[in-house]
Design a protein around this nucleic acid. Sequence first.
DNA 1: AACCATACCAACCGCAAAGTT
DNA 2: AAACTTTGCGGTTGGTATGGT
Length: 265
Amino acid sequence: MGRPPCCDKIGIKKGPWTPEEDIILVSYIQEHGPGNWRSVPTNTGLLRCSKSCRLRWTNYLRPGIKRGNFTPHEEGMIIHLQALLGNKWASIASYLPQRTDNDIKNYWNTHLKKKLNKSESEERIISENIPLQPSAARNTINHRSTYASSTENISRLLEGWMRASPKSSTANFLEQKSQNRTNDLMDHHNDQSPYEQGSWDQGFHVHPKNSEENVKCDHDVQEDGDGDGDATPPLTFIEKWLLEETNTGGQMEVMSPLMELSNML
DNA sequence: AACCATACCAACCGCAAAGTT
DNA sequence: AAACTTTGCGGTTGGTATGGT
């Protein structure tokens, strides 16, 4: 025990990351790979604690992250996985390979929790036989248009940086990364990508690190089941359901059996 | 136009598990 | 086995954009 807080040191910078810091971190990770976070600040000269570096990478800079614009299918998955697993955001995120646990957690806290509360109260009113106008707001997801703007800035910055630099392995990596980001942004701007089979495949195959993490997370989830006894249902069922969901194109109707089960649990 | 309230997201903090010596 | 270090997770908060008055 007695671990000293890593962020208490004098001279450690806090707050929002600058594009320059992002570039330093990305290029370092490209060379050395993610991990050994302890050594990242000393080796890069970044005035950040190791924790902050890891968080920045996993939640923001890691290739293959999809940001904003949660599809109805993703939303449904989060709702049901949360019902089944509780606030195990990392576990839930392992089933949404392009999303980070932080993103899912934020989306839950800012959108879905309210939505569910509203739905529950409306259902209660309905069950009490009080007439109620259909609520348009119930099906409305408030997506803020500025959500991806910072990502876009990073993308542009990286592109500019690469043009100015000789073609190194780092630059190649960044170019690829930039391309991924651009593709993501295209998805966002088009706003037309229902959660489809291709998205899964892309998430798992294009980003090896991602899938590697998924394997680990899934393993963790399974261990959770017999560990703390927090009523985690058999994961094989969830996986089966997710598979069916993926194959059927993710219609909400498919979830009703699951909802019944989760209600029973 | 200015002010205030609310919504949202990025990042921080503390704790615990896992890993290492 | 104990002490220590590192990593990961979930809860929370601060800053800022947006909407309303």
